[in-house]
Computed example of a mutant assay.
Amino acid sequence: MAGVQDQLEIKFRLSDGSDIGPKSFPAATSVSTLKESILAQWPKDKENGPRTVKDVKLISAGKILENNRTVGECRSPICDVPTTMHVVVQPPSSEKEKKMTSEPKQNKCVCVIL
């Protein structure tokens, strides 16, 4: 019975509302390993997919999960199975900087004189 409790069923919700999984993971699985699994299972037809583990953020119960934590440590005490984690893809900072420098800067300040 202890072996069953050491496994967690996790579903990954993508930003477009589609899912990867559910799939069972041991409670000792690291968040970094979950991200690698997401990369391997990422739908090929989706645009702007992550290229590396660093591009992926996992959110569970409103918290961004740290790579060095285990699934068991991140588990919500309220519910056991299945767990849904939200997946956010962040482009590398160099792409963000390129995007910001290529767009003309606009002053968005508004002054109101009374």
Rank of each mutant, 00 (worst) to 15 (best):
1 M>Q: 14
2 A>T: 10
3 G>M: 12
3 G>W: 07
4 V>G: 08
4 V>M: 14
5 Q>C: 13
5 Q>P: 01
6 D>C: 07
7 Q>L: 13
7 Q>D: 01
12 F>C: 05
12 F>Y: 15
13 R>S: 11
15 S>R: 13
16 D>R: 15
19 D>F: 11
21 G>W: 14
23 K>L: 10
23 K>R: 15
25 F>N: 00
26 P>M: 15
27 A>V: 11
28 A>F: 09
29 T>S: 10
29 T>R: 01
32 S>D: 14
36 E>D: 08
36 E>I: 05
37 S>N: 14
40 A>Y: 07
42 W>M: 01
43 P>G: 02
44 K>L: 11
44 K>H: 13
45 D>F: 11
45 D>S: 13
47 E>M: 09
49 G>K: 04
55 D>Q: 05
57 K>W: 00
57 K>D: 08
58 L>Q: 04
59 I>N: 06
62 G>L: 04
62 G>V: 05
65 L>E: 00
67 N>F: 01
74 C>D: 04
77 P>K: 03
77 P>C: 02
79 C>I: 15
79 C>K: 12
82 P>G: 01
83 T>M: 14
83 T>Y: 09
85 M>I: 09
87 V>H: 01
89 V>I: 15
91 P>H: 09
93 S>K: 09
95 E>W: 05
96 K>I: 12
97 E>H: 06
98 K>E: 14
100 M>S: 10
101 T>I: 13
103 E>T: 11
103 E>R: 04
106 Q>P: 03
110 V>L: 13
112 V>N: 04
114 L>R: 14
